[in-house]
């Protein structure tokens, strides 16, 4: 069982994840239409790239955009969540060992205590995000069960992983939960809203090009995101 879910199934998850994201990226870009979107994408590659980068970077940095600065508390929660969700699994010692054993790749890692802090950060942020979802009327009206389900799906590998690392509870159970939920997450990403792991960059690049090429042509230094 363990060999299967950390072998073929893991492979399959990664394939679905990468191929799925790849296909969606290609479809997205092919679906951009200079006439319908009314953005001359091809005519001004320089302005387009500058606009896209500025749009992405301002929003990638905490408090880097007017939008983030308008919501300081949420910004902190948001970044704690996202930094933890991305960095922890990528650079976890345990994951690097598997990489080394399976494929002989020497992968960089973060110290265990950092991983712990990040994970706890993710868990706290998750709770706050969930509370925000039903506490604020303007968020509650938008929220569906699907949003909670995705939040749960995203956080399960973190909860279970944390329990495994710290050997709390039934270790085998939590280990299997961790691996399976992690794989489920990978598979779900291309097919759900979680597509935003790539979609964020695509969408921001598009609006950045829109402003860079067309809507902020006369603004010195481009649009003030």
């Amino acid at each position: 069982m363990y060999n299967f879910i950390t072998g073929p199934l893991l492979w399959l998850s990664f394939i679905v994840f990468f191929v799925g994201l790849g296909v969606r990226t290609v479809l997205y870009i092919r679906g951009l239409d200079w006439r319908l979107d009314r953005v001359a994408y091809r005519a001004y590659p320089g302005l387009g790239i500058k606009g896209a980068l500025s749009s992405i970077i301002h929003w990638l940095i905490p408090f880097g955009s007017h939008g983030w600065r308008a919501k300081p508390l949420y910004t902190i929660i948001f970044f704690v969540f996202h930094v933890g969700v991305v960095v922890t699994p990528l650079f976890l010692l345990g994951h690097a060992i598997i990489m080394e054993e399976r494929w002989g790749i020497n992968w960089p890692t973060i110290p265990m205590w950092v991983a712990d802090v990040l994970t706890i950060g993710v868990l706290i942020a998750t709770v706050l995000i969930a509370i925000r979802r039903f506490a604020l009327p303007e968020v509650r009206i938008l929220t569906t069960l699907y949003d909670y389900a995705l939040l749960l799906l995203t956080v399960t590998p973190f909860v279970s992983g944390f329990l495994v690392v710290h050997q709390w509870g039934d270790n085998t159970f939590w280990l299997y939960t961790h691996i399976l939920s992690g794989e489920l997450l990978l598979i779900a990403i291309p097919f759900t809203k979680l597509f935003h792991v790539v979609g964020y960059f695509l969408s921001r690049a598009q609006i950045g090009m829109d402003f860079g090429i067309k809507r902020a042509v006369k603004a010195k230094g481009g649009f003030a995101w």
């Binding site: 679906g31 979107d37 949420y74 968020v139 979609g199 695509l202």
Partner: peptide, 14 residues
């Protein structure tokens, strides 16, 4: 096309 469809889909309901 993809721009609008993607917007509608990925809106995080935030």
């Amino acid at each position: 096309k993809s721009r609008i469809r993607t917007w509608l889909e990925i809106c995080a309901h935030c």
